[in-house]
Amino acid sequence: MSRQAGWYWVKGMLGCDDWSPSYWDSRLARWDSLIPDGDEIKAGPRIPTPGEPWQCVPVEPTGEMLDAGKASSNIYFKWRDMLAAAPKPGGGDEP
């Protein structure tokens, strides 16, 4: 499997059932030293770095996002407005 170098959410590290971040070294094709060889882990999505243009949003748009999207007929501006209206981490509107 080809995996991009970077931080990923992994589950099963050191026998833990919680998700934890771990670094994948693509040159060595292995996880960082915190994961013993042979550990069965499940890898989730890669964690974007701060310099990447990514934003976490709800799986389903909120009412505020849908309302914001109605303000424009241009798809780019609609998308931009909906992302701006999305809940922000640490903003108190997480489930």
Rank of each mutant, 00 (worst) to 15 (best):
A5R: 10
A43S: 12
L34A: 12
G6Y: 02
T49M: 13
R46I: 09
P58I: 04
V57N: 02
N74C: 11
G91Q: 09
V10D: 00
I35L: 13
I47C: 05
I41K: 01
W24A: 02
D67M: 08
C16Y: 15
E40I: 12
W31C: 01
G91F: 03
P21V: 04
P21D: 14
A85E: 01
T62N: 02
I35C: 14
D81L: 07
C56I: 12
P87N: 04
S73N: 12
V59K: 08
D93H: 14
S72H: 14
R80T: 08
A85L: 03
G15M: 07
K70S: 08
L14G: 10
M82K: 00
F77S: 12
A85K: 00
K88H: 09
K11P: 00
R80A: 13
S73I: 07
R46G: 05
A85W: 00
I47H: 04
E94Y: 09
S26T: 10
P21L: 10
W31F: 09
A71M: 12
P87Q: 04
I35N: 04
S33G: 12
A85Y: 00
V57R: 04
R80D: 13
M13K: 12
W7H: 06
R27E: 15
L28M: 13
S72N: 13
S33P: 05
M82V: 03
I41M: 03
P61I: 00
E94F: 06
V10N: 01
S22L: 11
A43N: 04
A85S: 04
S72M: 07
Q4F: 07
